[in-house]
């Protein structure tokens, strides 16, 4: 009954759509965002290529976190936010009236800056997304697969029923990645996933990102330029809400076209 009503309300054929070039998973088009009267994003245009890692860098407050949160409409949770412009996912407009945030977020998973596991057991954490989305599957298998994909299985396989908050910070963050993988997303957004972690835990996450891009499209925000250079294929440099430069990571780091980009990556400000 409920499913029928849902079907009735949501007519996907009405969703505005365009044809994106092949290999382009997401496109941000002329996107503006305001917090009350403060404009945080100014007509941002950016393409996200499929099965690649796209990094967003820039000084604090430049809007990089706001931009990544716009990709799965997480900014909708902040009442003062107002947006204009479009974000396309597989050719569908993420910000269309008929688009269901829930569907978007299932396709576009997210890992946050601070590890934020639920105060449940490890396995319940991983399975949460499947449960709320009514995905009917073998819990044990699913949990095992996701934990393996997140390179955490070896460390926790003997204590899946323990509270997730008893894990170390790095383990918690990998658990959050496993949890995001469980809903079988196509894109994974990472908002400074290593900023709360020590160097060893960071290296593990970076290795993991390298693995993930074989199956997923990854967008990562980082304030660590070395990290962007190490893990990403494409880099976007933002400053004061504008996307200043976007291109191949090697090009951005070796031959930046904009003066501001060069200053930032050579560490002269930011």
């Amino acid at each position: 009954m409920l499913a029928k009503i849902r079907e009735f309300i949501k007519d996907e054929t009405k969703c505005e759509r365009i044809d994106l070039p092949e290999n382009t998973k997401m496109r941000v088009q002329d996107f503006d965002l305001w917090y009350d009267d403060t404009q945080a994003l100014k007509s941002v245009d950016m393409d996200v290529e499929e099965y690649k890692v796209t990094a967003i860098i820039g000084p604090s407050g430049c809007g990089k976190s706001t931009l990544i949160r716009s990709l799965n409409r997480m900014n909708d949770t902040i009442p003062s936010v107002r947006t204009e412009g479009k974000v396309w996912l597989d050719g569908y407009n993420v910000y269309d009236e008929v688009t269901d945030c829930v569907d978007i977020r299932r396709k576009v998973g997210m890992v946050f800056q601070k590890p934020n596991p639920f105060p449940f057991s490890i396995e319940d954490n991983v399975f949460y997304g499947c449960e709320v989305n009514g995905m009917d599957m073998d819990k044990e298998k699913k949990v095992k697969k996701c934990l393996k994909d997140a390179a955490l299985w070896e460390e926790v396989n003997d204590r899946l029923d323990e509270n997730a908050l008893s894990l170390s910070g790095g383990q918690q963050q990998r658990l959050c990645i496993a949890r995001a993988l469980a809903t079988e997303p196509e894109v994974i957004l990472m908002d400074e996933p290593c900023s709360a972690l020590d160097p060893i835990a960071t290296a593990k996450i970076e290795d993991l990102i390298d693995e993930l891009k074989n199956h997923y499209t990854v967008v990562i925000v980082t304030h660590n330029m070395q990290q962007a250079a190490r893990v990403s294929d494409y880099t976007a440099y933002m400053y004061l809400g504008e996307l200043i430069e976007f291109g191949d990571t090697t090009q951005i780091f070796e031959n930046p076209q904009e003066n501001s980009t060069e200053k930032y990556i050579t560490g002269r400000f930011g």
Binding site: R105, G109, M110, F112, N116, V132, C176, T183
Partner: peptide
């Protein structure tokens, strides 16, 4: 913590869930 509510929403849970 808002973190936790966000984590749930980001996994595709509805507001009520």
């Amino acid at each position: 913590p808002k973190d936790m509510k966000d984590a749930s929403l980001a996994l595709g849970a509805t507001k009520w869930q």
